[in-house]
Every structure is written in structure tokens, then in C-alpha cells.
């Protein structure tokens, strides 16, 4: 796949599509070029990466083992994973109450508690994002997107915490996590195992 040469705009468009998983809307010239190269698939109104496109991005984002910033990024990633678990647990609590019933958002007290705890998570991830961005400037946009999602949530639209079809707090976070995994070159399974170990060690 490394012999494929993409223009800068095409490369960025492909990275965005792989991290987001899909796109809708009109096909841009860049996306059409990617489709012609067999890197993305256009199915009706939906665009999705092909396995070749995903492989291309994995290879292109992955930091070389000897990269000087790798150790710093891994150290920050180790701090990120327990917070990542906390965020997923929080989103789960937002969707399902502790007794297993669906959260219908009629209990203001319950929802306000979750929103309040989201501030702790946002406070925890803020310094980590800053550190990631020092080594990976392309990640600068996540802070802004998370803040946007929070603002919309606080405007009263509950979907901005965990809805998968908009750039909700969880969606942006999931993209961030995916980009980190691709950058580090770790499989999902390895990531899950590492997270499990770190969470156990942190005594959470």
C-alpha cells in the first residue's frame, strides 16, 4: 500500500473518513479520487473506507518504533486509558440506569449528576490532550470539538453526550481514541487489555 501516493488533501480526507468510519453527503473531488483508487467505497449516500483504505491510513499514521516522541505519547496514553474507561462508564450510565433500565431522562437529579461528573472527566483529559498535541499537532482539533459538544449539551440537547450520529462528546472522544490507537499501532484487543491492567492498577 505504501506505493500509493496521495495528494495532501486526499490523504487528509482519507484519514478523516477512516477515523470517522463513514461520511454522508455529496462526493467531493478528493473523495471521488479516493474511490477511483479503491481506498473508499461509495454506496448510495454513504461513503466508507475499504479495507485497503483502512490499511493505508493505519500505515500512514503509525509512529515508527524509534520515533523520539513515541515514549512521551505512550506515557500520556497510559494516563488516557483509565480516563477513557471512566468516560465510557459515564456514557453507559447516561444510557442505562444502574438497575438495567433505560435512562429515559425524566430524572433531572440523575442526569445532573452525570453531567456534573463529566466535568471531572473533561478536567482529567484536558492536560492529556495538551500533551498529545505537543507531539501530534493534528490532534489539536479534538479539544475544540469536545468543548463544542459540551456547550450544545448545556444548551439543553441531551443527544450531545452520547448520540453516535452526531459529533457528540462520546463520538469525538471515540475518534480521538481511534486516532491514538492508529498512531501507536496497537490492536483493539491490546488496547483493551492495557486499559484493563491500568484501571486495576489505578485502584478505580
Amino acid at each position: 500500500m505504501s506505493d500509493v501516493v496521495l495528494a495532501e488533501g486526499e490523504h487528509d480526507a482519507l484519514v478523516t473518513l477512516v477515523i470517522r468510519g463513514m461520511a454522508r453527503g455529496e462526493v467531493s473531488a478528493q473523495q471521488q479520487a479516493l474511490a477511483d483508487a479503491g481506498l473508499i467505497l461509495i454506496k448510495g449516500p454513504i461513503m466508507m473506507p475499504t479495507p485497503a483504505g483502512t490499511a493505508f491510513v493505519s500505515e500512514s499514521l503509525r509512529l515508527p518504533d524509534q520515533a523520539p516522541e513515541r515514549e512521551r505519547i505512550m506515557a500520556t496514553f497510559h494516563r488516557f486509558l483509565p480516563v477513557n474507561r471512566a468516560l465510557r462508564d459515564l456514557c453507559t450510565a447516561w444510557q442505562v440506569r444502574p438497575d438495567g433500565s433505560v435512562n429515559d431522562h425524566s430524572d433531572e437529579n440523575y442526569d445532573a449528576d452525570i453531567r456534573d461528573r463529566l466535568d471531572d472527566i473533561d478536567d482529567s483529559v484536558a492536560p492529556l490532550l495538551k500533551r498529545f498535541t505537543e507531539d501530534l499537532p493534528r490532534m489539536a482539533g479534538y479539544r475544540e470539538k469536545l468543548t463544542e459538544a459540551l456547550a450544545k449539551l448545556d444548551d439543553g440537547d441531551d443527544t450531545w453526550l452520547a448520540s453516535p450520529l452526531i459529533d457528540s462528546y462520546h463520538t469525538v472522544w471515540m475518534h480521538l481514541h481511534q486516532e491514538l490507537i492508529l498512531t501507536i499501532g496497537m490492536s483493539r484487543k491490546e488496547d483493551e487489555e492495557l486499559e484493563e491492567r491500568l484501571v486495576a492498577e489505578s485502584g478505580a
Binding site: T92, L165, S168
Partner: peptide
């Protein structure tokens, strides 16, 4: 793989 609080589970519930 993944637990009941995985990204996949959050997305499935969201959908």
C-alpha cells in the same frame, strides 16, 4: 470482545 461499556455498546445503545 469488549464489555457492556465498550464504545460499541455505547454506540449500539445510542442507535
Amino acid at each position: 470482545n469488549g464489555g457492556s461499556a465498550s464504545h460499541a455498546a455505547v454506540v449500539a445503545r445510542g442507535m
